[in-house]
Every structure is written in C-alpha cells, then in structure tokens.
Amino acid sequence: MNKKRIVIGITGASGAPYGLCLLEECLRQGHEVHLLVSEAGWRVLKEEQGWEVQKREQLFYNRYKHLEGTLLFHPLKDIGASIASGSFQCDGMVIIPCSMGTMARIAQGISGNLMERTADVMLKEKKPLVIVPRETPLSAIHLENMLKLAQYGASIVPAMPAFYHQPQTIEDMVRFVAGKVLDQLHIDHQLYRRWST
C-alpha cells in the first residue's frame, strides 16, 4: 500500500466522531497524519467524547499509539510548522468537522492560524482540500462559502450519512462519512459497504 501524508483538522462544529474515525483509519493503514485541533474543537471533544483535555496532544498519542501510522501534532499558533509551507510534500488536507467560521475564513483567504494557513497552502498548491461542514440549517452565507471553496478546488463532503448500506449503529453512520472522505483522497478502505445491484 502506498503510504500517504495527510493533514487532519478538527474544529468546533459538532461531529468530533467523524474526525476521530478518519484519524484512526488513516493511522491504522500506516499513513502519516499531521493533526490540528482548534480551541473550540477541544471543547467539542470534551462535550461529545467526554475527554479531559488538559493534556491535549498526549490524549491523542496515548489513544492511537498502538496503530501503525505516524501521528504528529501541531499547535494552532505554530504558524512556522512544516505544513504551513508550500514546499512541504503532502497528499491532502481534511477539515472534519469544519465549522462555518473556519470555512468562512478559508473562503476569504484569511490565514489567522495554522489550520487556515495550511488550507490556504492546499488551495494555492492545488492539492486536495476536503471540507466536511457540519451545520443545519445552512444560511445563504454558508452556501456561498461552500460554492466559493468548491470553485477554488476544494471538495465539499457534508456530514450526511446514507442509509442504503443499512447502518445498524451510530458508528456505521460515522464510518460512512469518513469513508466518503477517504474516497476523495483516493485511499482504499472498508469503512462501509458500497452500493451494488
């Protein structure tokens, strides 16, 4: 299997399980993952996963150290990190879940932190940028920002589970969305049963 280098960002939108599922699958397959978590993202991890987030990155290392891949954590303020440069070789970036605020700033070309800067690099270098928005209902502003990012080359993969594969658990629904993201990155997986007739 061809090992890839992927950046994963987790923001403050509801839907932390989507990001964690994607992270776990990438590491399980042996890929190199560069992880970013926004301040609001840490709050969502606490509320949705029950994580005590004082130790922050150590939580991720402890949770995923048994997996084959390489996990590298970057603080949001580290604007000089490797992933902030267009010369850094990377196979793509996913922001999952992506808050409407983060999406708006990326759509406007604002690079106020490392997550936004890295997304900007993906766009300018024409590398895969996958945005997984998690909001409902969507305002015209949200839709406009999604359209703008799609026109700039980003893939918009809303957190919309399907039911044709007959999910039995919440995990099945989460795995479907993570699988659709991996499809955008051309990474093989077995996270859900594909449609066949």
Rank of each mutant, 00 (worst) to 15 (best):
E135F: 03
E57G: 03
M122N: 11
L22S: 08
A81L: 04
T169N: 09
L147A: 14
T197K: 15
E25V: 03
A140K: 12
M103Y: 13
S82I: 02
L45K: 02
G15L: 07
R193M: 09
G101P: 00
K126C: 09
V157N: 02
L149E: 08
L149V: 02
V37P: 01
K148D: 12
A119L: 07
S99G: 13
A154L: 05
F176M: 11
I156K: 09
Q89M: 08
M173I: 04
M1K: 09
K65L: 07
G12N: 07
M160G: 00
W195N: 00
T118S: 15
T11N: 10
N113E: 15
L182N: 10
K126N: 14
H165K: 02
Q108E: 11
Q168K: 15
V53F: 09
R194M: 03
V7M: 13
C26D: 06
V132H: 08
K127M: 05
Y192M: 07
L72C: 06
H74F: 14
Q184G: 04
A159F: 13
G9S: 08
Y164G: 04
I187N: 05
K127P: 00
P137M: 10
S155L: 08
L20Y: 14
G50Y: 12
G12H: 08
I95K: 06
R43I: 08
I96F: 13
T197N: 12
Y61I: 02
G86W: 03
R193A: 13
S14I: 14
Q29D: 01
L67H: 10
K180Q: 14
V121F: 12
R193G: 08
I8M: 05
A104H: 02
Q108Y: 08
I106V: 15
V174K: 03
L35H: 03
F176N: 09
R63V: 01
M1G: 15
A150N: 12
V177L: 04
L129D: 11
E135R: 13
T118N: 04
V177K: 04
I110F: 15
C98Q: 01
G12I: 01
A159T: 10
Y152M: 15
Q49N: 06
Q58A: 15
N145I: 05
G12L: 06
I96N: 12
G86M: 02
S85N: 15
